[in-house]
Structure formats: structure tokens, C-alpha cells
Computed example of a mutant assay.
Amino acid sequence: MVLEGVEHPRYRTALLELAGEGNQEAEPPLSSRDNEHLLALAILGARQNGGNVTLEGTMHNLYFMRDQQVCTDQGMVMGRMATPERQREGTLTRIALSALGAGPVGLIRRGHLEGGDFIPAGTFALLGYGSRTDREGADALLWSGSGFEEVAVVREPVHPLINGADPMVSMHLDTYCNLAGDGVVVGNQALLDRAEVQVLASDGGRYRPTGWEGSLSEYLKEKDFSIVPVTTLEQLCYAPNFLCVRDRECIAIDTGLVAQAVIKRLQRRATSRPGIYGRLLAEVEEDYRKLRQDAEFFPFKKEVYAEGLEMVPIDLHNATGGYGGAHCMTCPIRRG
């Protein structure tokens, strides 16, 4: 879709600028090269220096297509990525979305906003902030591209078993909480209980505090959502990061296939920093023992079946190593 988009001179210029970072002296000049070549240069971060080519700023996270933009009830809003290695991705996704006829209705110019921190739920939405999306970026979204009657602004929680903070454990809202259908949430209870919520309501085009404050679990219960709980291990395996394709029908990670890799990664961290990760590792290893004994790795859980959820499990053993699942790897282009 990027190649279709750059048929428009405006977007070819954008791609040319992206590919040209560090390549101003390239021979032959980039302006004479075809679009496929420019796209490869941009994604690889290729830099030409005489006869040598180096790769700097490769877009190795581009397969996580959720984060560069947010699909609100008003349309696409282009975000601002928090980490330097991902900041260039938005230019490419904007070109592709424009080629699909889903060009952005808004652009975040201050703070940081990433799509994994936004979950719509009909007339209201959940909007997370913390280590990736910050409060300034969240507020910018409310000003530029949201028409929801109510928005629950959710502060990223710190896991109670970590002595300190590790933003990779719950870096986005959709890594510990996700909607599986009307009235059903899948989430890790410890994090839902510690995620602080402030409720805002739309008032004449502006969002104002309603005065309601509490935990995310309390808020969801007030909205009459039932909660399908996942263990700490399943949460670290990105169980909540499923893709809901229609009401109560989802594509989910088979956490049993990735659990051992997650445990080994945590064991390495706990070996070098036992004071930070020791309690978390002990919990995860006990989760594994129980889940294996009961044969209840998500999504094969009695709570899932009790809610009538259809979870199609897939093996994302390798892809989850980049810290994300099916939800992170997809980009919606319009709300129904």
C-alpha cells in the first residue's frame, strides 16, 4: 500500500525525505531512483558512504502495526512514537493509510501517543498512559480526534511483584487488558486493580473530569463487564493481546507454546537482578506448574468457555519475542 500511495507526488516526496536521511550525497541521486528502491532504503535505514552501505535506524518493529496511529470514532489519528527507533514508522503508515482512503483526520504534535494504549468500547473508550503514551499525548488525542461520550484515562500500573519498575511488563494498555466482546474483558487482575482511572465526559466538544476515580477493575465492573482473569505468566505471554474480529470471536496467542521462552527470558533477568525480579519469577514458575497440571493455558480456560468466547489459537512463538501479540500486529482502518 505504501507503493500505491507514493504514486501521489506529495507522498513520493515524503518517502524521498525518509529514504534520504543521511543519503544526501548518494550517487546516483535518490530522486532518480524508483519507489521500490526508496522504500527499501527507508525501511532498512540504509546509509551510503561512497561504496559502503550501513544500516542505521532499521524499522525492525514495523510489523507491530497498531502503534503508529489510533483508529477513533472520528477516523485515523497519527500518533507520536515514544522510542527513537520507532519514530520514523508513522511516515510510512500514513502513506499506506492514505492509499487505502483512510488518511488521518488528526495528527499528534505534542507528547507521545501509541495505538496499543487505546481501546474503544462503543460509546466510551479506554485510553492508557505511562511509559509509552504520556499524559500530554493522551490529552492531545482528546482534543484532536475523539468523539466518545466518555473516556476512561488509565494510568499504567507497576506490577506488585517487581521491586522497582519494568515498562516492558505493561508498556501498553492492551498488554494487560483487552475487550473480547460486549461486556467481557480479559485481563490480569493484579494489574487491573492497580491501574488508576480518571473518567472524563464530553461537554460541548471538550472533555471534563466527572469526579469518578478508582481502579480499572472497579470501572469495568461499574460498566457491567465480566472479567476473564489471566495469570501473571499468561499476561507476560501476551494472552490479553488478542485480536477481536467480531463480538466474542478472537484470534489469540496459544500461551502454552510461548510460556517456556518467556520463563527463560525472565530467569536471565532474575539471575542478574534477583532483587528486582525474584518474586515475579517465583510467581511465574508457580503459574506454569499449575497451568500445566490443569491443562488450562490461555485460551483453553474454563472461564473462556463459560463466557461463550470463541478463541482461535495461533502459534506466535517467534513474533512475541518483539514484545507483542496479534492485537499489536494489526491495524484497524475504520470503526463500524
Rank of each mutant, 00 (worst) to 15 (best):
33 R>K: 01
289 R>L: 09
188 N>L: 07
274 P>L: 12
28 P>V: 10
53 V>E: 15
146 S>R: 06
330 T>M: 13
236 L>M: 13
140 A>C: 00
270 A>N: 07
313 P>H: 08
308 G>Y: 14
14 A>R: 10
277 Y>R: 01
223 K>C: 08
121 A>Q: 13
151 V>C: 03
235 Q>R: 07
290 K>I: 13
89 E>V: 01
302 K>A: 11
176 Y>D: 05
75 G>E: 07
205 G>H: 04
53 V>W: 13
317 H>Y: 14
182 D>N: 13
320 T>R: 09
34 D>H: 07
122 G>D: 11
84 P>L: 05
137 G>S: 03
282 A>W: 05
195 A>N: 06
202 S>K: 09
147 G>D: 11
24 Q>A: 11
96 A>F: 06
162 I>H: 10
330 T>W: 02
45 G>I: 04
20 G>E: 14
31 S>R: 14
54 T>E: 14
58 T>G: 01
331 C>V: 10
15 L>I: 12
322 G>V: 04
269 R>Q: 09
88 R>P: 01
320 T>W: 03
222 E>A: 12
267 Q>Y: 02
329 M>Y: 04
186 V>H: 02
109 R>S: 10
305 Y>P: 06
4 E>M: 12
332 P>N: 14
131 S>K: 08
164 G>C: 04
284 V>H: 08
23 N>V: 06
157 P>A: 02
291 L>V: 01
77 V>L: 01
155 R>G: 11
270 A>S: 13
63 Y>H: 10
27 E>K: 11
324 G>L: 04
20 G>F: 04
255 T>A: 03
198 Q>N: 05
101 G>W: 15
306 A>I: 12
11 Y>E: 08
139 D>K: 05
227 I>M: 04
175 T>N: 13
321 G>M: 09
89 E>M: 02
251 I>S: 01
176 Y>P: 00
164 G>A: 08
54 T>G: 11
233 L>P: 00
149 E>W: 01
317 H>I: 13
168 M>E: 14
163 N>Q: 09
278 G>I: 05
217 S>T: 07
216 L>Q: 03
293 Q>D: 04
301 K>V: 06
128 G>Q: 05
52 N>R: 15
308 G>D: 05
134 D>L: 07
83 T>Y: 04
153 V>R: 04
332 P>K: 12
307 E>A: 15
330 T>L: 08
106 G>R: 04
242 F>K: 07
294 D>P: 00
325 G>N: 07
114 E>R: 08
84 P>V: 08
277 Y>W: 09
160 P>F: 01
111 G>Q: 12
112 H>Y: 10
308 G>R: 12
276 I>P: 00
226 S>V: 15
306 A>N: 12
